[in-house]
């Protein structure tokens, strides 16, 4: 599969990602801009794409607006007034075609991501050797707009380009400030929350501790365990942190409790934490009990 070539330029205020796609030697260039909310905080990203797409020696122009969220996740497109998308022979997209394109672009797991343009129109049989049945390619064909296979393919690969996603995430990460993090935490978005704890440097956990605690309060799954493991030891022993964990200890799941106990040090425990740990001791043989004994005996 031919991999499109991307090049990025990032400028403050108007983030510009210059995207050069090398598909049949047609360079593709576009700029991605950041959009800010009323508070002046980063909100999302958008771009205007204008590129010729050639199919069977016939070329047509694609003009479209794309939007990504702060995690670089594609969220939607918009048409340019007066610039309809067209298929082969310049037949305009129907409203069903637009809906189909929307469904395709929103499917980040679409099998179209695995195929080159050429593979999409090959005899489906030939692809069986790599473990994907002919039916899979048939399924891709059903997802794309008939007569607009190449533009669907090009647009999907822009929308879900790993390089675009990474650069947008990096841009978001570089823009983290206290008010921006406060805003992000309110979104209660699991992937975003993981992004934040993965982004914070050790010394930043202290600054963002109230937001980190808020994220843990609304978290599901293993977020609390993972966050405890990410928080530096000195921040865990901060009285705000210990007070929080002491009050929440019983509500934490077993694995979060064990992660916390592994982080705590006997000499730095506040009284409330010691009391909680005493109350948690049981007869059962478990790592939790052993760790508690190590902390309070």
């Amino acid at each position: 599969m031919k991999v499109a070539q991307f090049l990025f330029l990032i400028l403050p205020c108007a983030l510009i990602v210059s995207f050069i796609g090398n598909e049949q030697s047609d360079d593709l260039y576009f700029e991605i801009k950041e959009i800010r909310d009323g508070e002046g905080l980063l909100d999302r990203y958008e771009t205007y794409i204008r590129t010729p797409v050639c199919e069977d020696d016939k070329c047509y122009l694609v003009e479209i607006m794309f939007f990504w969220d702060l995690m670089g996740r594609y969220v939607g497109y918009d048409t340019i007034p007066g610039q309809q998308l067209t298929k082969l022979d310049h037949i305009p997209f129907t409203s069903e075609d637009y809906q189909k394109l929307d469904r395709l672009l929103k499917d980040s797991a679409s099998p179209i991501g695995k195929y080159s343009k050429e593979e999409l129109i090959k005899d489906t049989r030939e692809s069986e050797v790599d473990g994907f049945s002919g039916a899979t390619i048939q399924e891709v064909k059903e997802q794309v707009v008939s007569g607009g296979v190449y533009s669907c393919h090009t647009l999907w690969h822009i929308a879900h380009s790993g390089e675009v996603i990474d650069s947008l995430k990096n841009w978001t990460k570089a823009s983290l400030t206290k008010p921006f993090v406060k805003k992000l935490v309110k979104l209660d978005d699991q992937e975003l929350n993981y992004f934040l704890i993965n982004s914070f440097k050790d010394e930043e956990f202290d600054l963002y501790l109230p937001e980190v605690i808020l994220m843990m309060k609304q978290a599901e799954g293993y977020f609390v365990k993972n966050t405890i493991e990410a928080i530096p030891s000195n921040v865990i022993h901060d009285s705000l942190s210990q007070t929080y964990f002491a009050s929440e200890f019983k509500k934490l799941n077993y694995f979060s409790q064990v992660a916390l106990l592994k982080k705590l040090k006997p000499n730095n425990l506040i009284l409330e934490m010691k009391d909680v740990l005493h109350g948690e001791l049981s007869e059962k043989n478990s790592i939790k009990n052993k760790l508690i004994h190590n902390l309070i005996d």
């Binding site: 993981y194 992004f195 704890i197 293993y222 993972n226 493991e229």
Partner: peptide
């Protein structure tokens, strides 16, 4: 799964 992110 519902867990689509993890700690790096």
């Amino acid at each position: 799964t519902l867990l689509e992110s993890e700690r790096k």
